Amino acid sequence: MKVIKTEQDYEPIRIGIEKILNKEKSLPEYIYRQAYKFFLFITFDELFMPLFFNHLKRYLQATGENKFWLASIDPDPKHYFAAHFNFYGVVEFCSSDTEEEYLAALNDYPVDNPADALAHNTNSLVLFSAGYEWAIYGDRNSDIAICAFTDKTQMELFQFIYGYDLLDGVKAAAEYAYGDSGNSKLRATLYSSYSFD
């Protein structure tokens, strides 16, 4: 585990995020770049649980990857976290990290301001690996996270590993995020943005 504290370490991560997300958009709009075409859904809060980390570690091992980044999108890593807390709101994790280290990184930084920890003060964030074949965008306001993949086989592997802990498709995610009554326009937008054939 490595907490990102320097501009030199942050800059390639910032460039990576630009390859993944269109930060001009927000949910329920399509926020990913066009390479991502296959989607699965979990709850936002799940991103901060041991269950999620253990599933993700198994996925990394199955794909031969050994690290990933978790980065704040909102608040801004540079203008909020770095400016006030001397870290960029980004943590690099390795497949050898434990769930205790994962939870500590999300709850204990910045050390002197636990209320600003990533688990408590991120409205949106993204997780991704160096290969950019997958990314997970989490949005606190809608309380969902969208797992995106460039390849259907990668999505199916993630789905197999994650099992029944996933939300049951885009319709269930839209209803979970925006309620099954009211907000029909938001539900319809999420559904149309993340449905695939």
Score class of each variant (00 low, 15 high):
1 M>H: 09
3 V>H: 08
3 V>Q: 09
8 Q>M: 11
9 D>R: 05
17 I>A: 06
18 E>V: 10
20 I>V: 12
23 K>W: 04
27 L>G: 01
29 E>Y: 05
30 Y>A: 15
31 I>D: 03
32 Y>R: 05
33 R>Q: 14
34 Q>F: 08
35 A>I: 09
39 F>P: 07
40 L>E: 12
42 I>N: 07
43 T>N: 07
45 D>P: 07
45 D>F: 12
47 L>W: 05
47 L>Y: 07
49 M>Q: 15
49 M>K: 14
56 L>R: 03
61 Q>M: 15
66 N>Q: 13
68 F>I: 04
73 I>Q: 11
80 Y>S: 09
82 A>Q: 14
83 A>M: 12
83 A>R: 15
87 F>K: 04
89 G>A: 07
90 V>L: 09
94 C>P: 00
96 S>M: 10
100 E>F: 10
100 E>L: 10
103 L>Q: 11
106 L>D: 06
108 D>I: 02
109 Y>G: 00
110 P>V: 04
111 V>I: 15
113 N>K: 12
114 P>F: 01
115 A>M: 13
117 A>D: 04
118 L>G: 04
121 N>E: 09
125 L>C: 11
125 L>M: 12
127 L>C: 09
135 A>V: 01
140 R>D: 14
140 R>G: 06
142 S>M: 06
142 S>P: 06
143 D>P: 01
144 I>G: 00
146 I>V: 15
146 I>R: 03
147 C>A: 10
147 C>N: 05
151 D>H: 06
158 F>H: 08
159 Q>L: 02
160 F>N: 12
161 I>F: 00
163 G>Y: 02
163 G>M: 03
165 D>T: 12
167 L>C: 00
167 L>S: 00
168 D>A: 15
169 G>I: 02
170 V>Q: 09
172 A>F: 08
173 A>Q: 03
174 A>D: 02
183 N>G: 07
185 K>W: 14
185 K>I: 15
187 R>E: 05
189 T>D: 13
192 S>C: 10
192 S>W: 09
194 Y>E: 05
195 S>T: 13
197 D>G: 11
